[in-house]
Design a protein around this nucleic acid. Sequence first.
DNA 1: AAGTTAATTAATCAAGTGGTTAAATAATGC
DNA 2: GCATTATTTAACCACTTGATTAATTAACTT
Lengths: 109, 109
Amino acid sequence: MNEVTQLDAAFAALAHPARRAILARLAQGEATVNELAEPFEMSLPAVSKHIRVLEGANLITRARNAQFRPCTLNAAPLAAVAEWTEQYRHIWDVRFDTMTEILKDLEGK
Amino acid sequence: MNEVTQLDAAFAALAHPARRAILARLAQGEATVNELAEPFEMSLPAVSKHIRVLEGANLITRARNAQFRPCTLNAAPLAAVAEWTEQYRHIWDVRFDTMTEILKDLEGK
DNA sequence: AAGTTAATTAATCAAGTGGTTAAATAATGC
DNA sequence: GCATTATTTAACCACTTGATTAATTAACTT
């Protein structure tokens, strides 16, 4: 619905390195909470909370399989973030400016 | 230096709609605090704090000009965010998968 | 039924966020 | 020097975040 709050939640969720690491792991396939928690030093409840934040931002979806709750990556909010960021690309992408100048030069002749 | 905390700060700063609006304004050229505050209903100190967060994430740089402190957009963290996000593009970009399949088909023949 | 494994909830805590109003600082212009 | 304009700092408040340990729920295994 609201594009703004969707982006708010996505950006906020991505602001923590543990959550970005969890997403990186999920990019290679679904994983359970324990699997996701394994690389971290923090407690399981802490990881559980991070997962909840990611879920709240719709960055992951959770299923049920016996006592496991496998998580899968959800692309849509990442696409929204990419789309938002792309609108600023011309600011840092020097090649962009160079290219448009070259094209203008060519048209001018 | 530390790539992770740089991204942390950038994502956290981008998580607030007012701060994204400020960046959008600065994308069109430098502006003073009062100019940046004008579209918002919140108080000037509140805007000042948002600006400080953006500065902390290195998303803007501040100069001095008499009693004004003009802000300018800083592209580097946005580029870092874009780069981070791009690594997930293949997950949502269906055209990517379609394209690679087409290429595989062509090679197979 | 009892034990094990997976995950969440509860209670707690310190620190951070986002906002306010009121006061202070900085620089300009008369 | 004094008033004005631009901006920040201070003090405060409610709420959220990120973490902990201990307890609980859920589902499988024997």
